[in-house]
């Protein structure tokens, strides 16, 4: 698998991280060397092996359907980029 500039731009858009052309070229090089290294794993036959989702030898922990959280709006909203006592405020996103 080779990472070209087009792929870099696409990933950059999807991840909302802006990457200029100079940086993109360097990134493509870096990523390709990483991928080349990972390619080695393809030498292993994994046809009948389920993907491993966790190395922890436990089962999924669950909880009962109880409301335990309280209203912490003031604390939560401190992270809003803009001030408003009720809502998070973000630049207008509308179709």
């Amino acid at each position: 698998m080779t990472i070209d500039l087009k792929t870099i731009k696409h990933i950059s858009k999807l991840s909302r991280i802006s990457v200029d052309d100079a940086k993109a070229n360097k990134l493509a090089g870096d990523l390709n060397s990483i991928f080349d290294f990972i390619e080695k794993l393809n030498e292993l036959n994994t046809d009948n092996v389920e993907p491993l989702t966790s190395v922890a030898e436990t089962t999924l922990k669950s909880r009962a359907d109880e409301v335990k959280s309280e209203n912490i709006r003031d604390q939560i909203l401190k992270n809003s980029p803009d001030e408003n006592e009720d809502f998070f405020v973000v630049p207008r996103v509308v179709e």
């Binding site: 359907d65 109880e66 409301v67 335990k68 959280s69 209203n71 709006r73 909203l77 009720d86 998070f88």
Partner: peptide
């Protein structure tokens, strides 16, 4: 009563951002 992965209330019509 509570959300899929947290213990916040699911009650409809609450004041905004009070069940977060």
């Amino acid at each position: 009563n509570s959300k899929l992965f947290s213990s916040s209330s699911t009650t409809f019509g609450a004041e905004p951002n009070t069940q977060v």
